[in-house]
Amino acid sequence: MRFAGIFARKARCSLAKKFVGDAGKAKPFRTSGGKAAHMDNDRHINFKLLRDHILSEPPAVAGGQKYWRHLDELADSPVFEEFVRREFPHAAEEWNNPVERRTFLKLMGASLALAGLSSCVIQPPEKVIPYVKQPEEETPGQGLYFATAFSLGGIATPLLVRSNEGRPTKIEGNPYFFASFDSGALRSRSFADTALSR
């Protein structure tokens, strides 16, 4: 009863209101039969009943602590048990209906076959962007070949670079030079080509 007084004061806090009954009794509208049932059903909303229940339980033996996640679980009222049972049914039906599998396969097969259709839409218009001042030797669409070199281990290696609109697109060894960094086969072939072209 002392504690009920304390909690009557604390009833100003909305959270504590849950656990305060009228001096420990149930609210008027609850229809429960018998004192025991009344105590069990209201344990999760009546702090005094909850407290009595916890203190009356024997202390946990093997393992020490009794773990609980929230006060409803600790109260262990029949209402909570019902809630748990509905949430996690122990004897749920097994999913072994063969028609379901066929439907699943049909759906997957159709999705795979029709997946490409997402691209069958009219594409947005593209932009075409020219130069501001086009270099004279540039032919857009055709590459411009540059004979250049780069340093490979300190030795200048001749390269033939194809550039499209200023972007280098293919870099290969210059076939007219012996010290090309391409494989020996390519070097000897290009050697033969130049010999034949003469």
């Binding site: 962007i129 020219p130 130069y131 001042k133 032919t139 857009p140 669409g141």
Partner: peptide, 13 residues
Amino acid sequence: ETSASAGIPATAV
């Protein structure tokens, strides 16, 4: 007449 693309004129043109 010389390339695959006919070419859009540069601003300088």
